[in-house]
Design a binder for these strands. Structure first.
Length: 537
RNA sequence: GGCCUCAUCGUCUAACGGUUAGGACAACAGGUUCUCAAUCUGUUAAUCGGAGUUCGAUUCUCCGUGAGGUCACCA
């Protein structure tokens, strides 16, 4: 036995006593939560990961605990270059700062190889792990057989052919140099059940664990998720694991591992995934199929980060929007998130309309300076043309963003930064071209339009206040058969061709080339005399 | 298929076993307005089906149905 141990484990592994001492209990209050987020460096930051991070961090912060990041890079095949940077920058974007205390590090699993090996050795020594020389093909055949017999799939019971293999056979295979994995020796009876108390989902009855899963992999000796999670969360003194609910079915295994290693079990909470409709059925956001699964999507579109965060918070605790209504100025970090209120449904449907609504609300609250700042940052990476335009005349664009901002009726039509240029493109003097009057629905003939524009040009004065301006426009109305005010028109529709609106529509169309726009007076002011006269001619 | 979970307006969700089943987004109508947006007022809209327990069930129990998750040397 000792021979095998010497052969399969490196020398000088730390002892488990040393490890326990090296990672002492944290000096925190008993109610403090130590939580974490553990992404894999696959080059893709999932919205669900941000969601889970947000919850984990929030609970740590609210209890004066600790939230940390651990990079789970034990699958070297899936690892992508630059992926760690994507993780760091995404967390930074969402203001998800994490604890970096080196005392509990390293926080990258591939740098903790010896630690896992030490625990694997410990389990092996006490008979809770064994060597398995099965090839992938052999396992596949067994699985097919299980399917054919309609039995539970997996490496368990009589299918666990190396579980009780005689030592001579093991030594023989080992001496031949046959590759092996180190498997966990399960302790449960798959026929029996136990109750897991989930932080989010409540009591769940699950079968005991009888699966002998690999602990260390064949090719590089790195741990599987199961061993790594249990060892790390113990040593890093994690108290609460809030993770995706795809892990729920691994709970029996994880309990078994915690117990076998002699660790106190962490509290678990399993979060439902965010779903999306796919034709007539719903499924969780898919990395491959759904652009929204990647947080980069929101950045590229130009969603305000705080809107995405608040959208997610509202999915977590639906009373968030009530709180927000009562505290429009407060930072979301002041909201008290509760575990009890976390929805335990099967997962909400991603709703971009709702997200946009929140984003509009956020942008409406910004000053023009803030808007400019955001648009500039966005354009810098996603719209070079617009970026240069903004920089070439920042004062002008500040004025544009200030239109109908700060008064009683704040515009609420911009949801994402990528829509800004199109919304205000008529302010791009160089690119503006004379509108096609065929697109304007109007009561006037072409000649009348010419008259209106020419008459208006004569009375136009850049220094007019809004009231004076409106008075002048209304003064023009009778000449063209229009009612100066809407009420008069409504009172006697037959007496007029229409009301002031008809006239301003003509002006609007000449000035912006559109039938809809923000306040026409403010647009005139921002454009300035020279441009206005040009567009009226 | 086995195991686990879930089921309230179109969507996200509230409702100690007693509410007129509430709110938000969306939709629709109207007021206001130079158009649009915004804003204000209002409207439409839900307890998956069937048994049972109970004076009373969205809520508890069972059956059915539907949906989601999981069953890798991936996390």
């Amino acid at each position: 036995m000792q021979d095998i141990i010497n052969k399969i484990f490196p020398e000088n592994l730390p002892s488990i006593q040393e490890l326990e001492a090296k990672y002492p209990l944290r000096d925190l209050s008993p109610t403090a939560m130590v939580t974490r987020i553990c992404p894999s460096p696959t080059g893709f930051m999932h919205l669900g990961t941000i969601y889970a991070s947000l919850l984990n961090k929030k609970f740590a912060d609210q209890t004066n605990g600790v939230f940390y990041l651990r990079i789970e890079d034990t699958d070297k095949k899936r690892e992508v270059e630059g992926a760690k940077e994507i993780i760091h920058s995404s967390l930074k974007d969402y203001d998800l700062t994490y604890d970096k205390n080196p005392e509990y590090g390293p926080y990258i699993q591939s740098e903790r190889k010896d630690i896992y090996a030490a625990y694997a050795k410990h389990l092996f020594s006490k008979g809770d792990a064994y060597l398995c020389f099965c090839t992938e093909d052999e396992l596949k055949i067994a699985t097919e057989e299980q399917e054919r017999l309609k039995m539970k799939r997996g490496y368990y019971g009589k299918w666990a052919i190396w579980r009780d293999a005689p030592i001579e056979k093991v030594l023989a295979e080992l001496s031949k140099g046959i590759p092996y994995v180190i498997r966990f020796r399960s302790h449960g009876n798959g026929e029996k059940t136990f109750t897991h108390k989930d932080l989010l989902k409540g009591d769940i009855t699950l079968p005991e664990n009888d699966m002998d899963v690999p602990l260390l992999k064949k090719d590089n000796g790195l741990p599987t998720y199961h061993l790594a999670h249990v060892v790390d969360d113990h040593l890093m003194r994690t108290t609460d694991v809030l993770r995706g609910d795809e892990w729920l079915s691994s709970i029996p295994l994880h309990y078994d591992l915690f117990q076998s290693l002699g660790f106190p079990i962490v509290r678990y909470g399993h979060i439902s995934p965010i779903n999306k409709m796919d034709g007539s059925s719903r499924r969780k956001l898919s990395k491959r199929k759904d652009l929204e699964a990647n947080v980069a999507f929101f950045k590229e579109k130009g969603f305000v980060v705080s809107a995405v965060i608040e959208y997610l918070l509202n999915l977590a605790n639906s009373n968030f929007e009530d709180w927000r209504k009562e505290n429009p100025e407060k930072d979301y970090t002041e909201f008290n998130l509760t575990i009890e209120k976390l929805a335990k449904s099967n997962g909400p449907l991603y709703d971009e309309t709702k997200l946009r609504d929140i984003a509009k609300e956020k942008i409406a609250l910004m000053t023009s300076e803030k808007v400019f700042e955001h648009v500039l940052i966005w354009a810098q990476t996603y719209d070079q043309y617009f970026y240069e335009l903004l920089n070439s005349n920042s004062e002008y664009w500040h004025k544009i963003f200030n239109i109908e901002r700060g008064g009683d009726s704040i515009r609420k039509d911009i949801a994402i930064w990528s829509e800004v240029y199109d919304f205000y493109s008529f302010f791009d003097i160089e690119k503006f071209s004379k509108p096609d009057w065929g697109n304007l629905k109007t009561v006037f003939t072409v000649d009348e339009i010419k008259n209106i524009l020419s008459e208006y040009k004569d009375i136009y004065d850049e220094s007019d206040t809004k009231d004076i301006w409106l008075g002048k426009v209304k003064g023009l109305c009778p000449k063209f058969g229009l009612a100066p005010d809407i009420k008069a028109y409504k009172a006697d529709k037959d007496a007029y061709k229409g009301h002031v609106g008809e006239l301003t529509q003509v002006l609007r169309f000449a000035i912006t080339g559109r039938t809809q726009s923000p306040d026409i007076y403010e647009i005139l002011q921002v454009l300035g005399r020279e441009v206005v006269i040009k567009r009226l001619s």
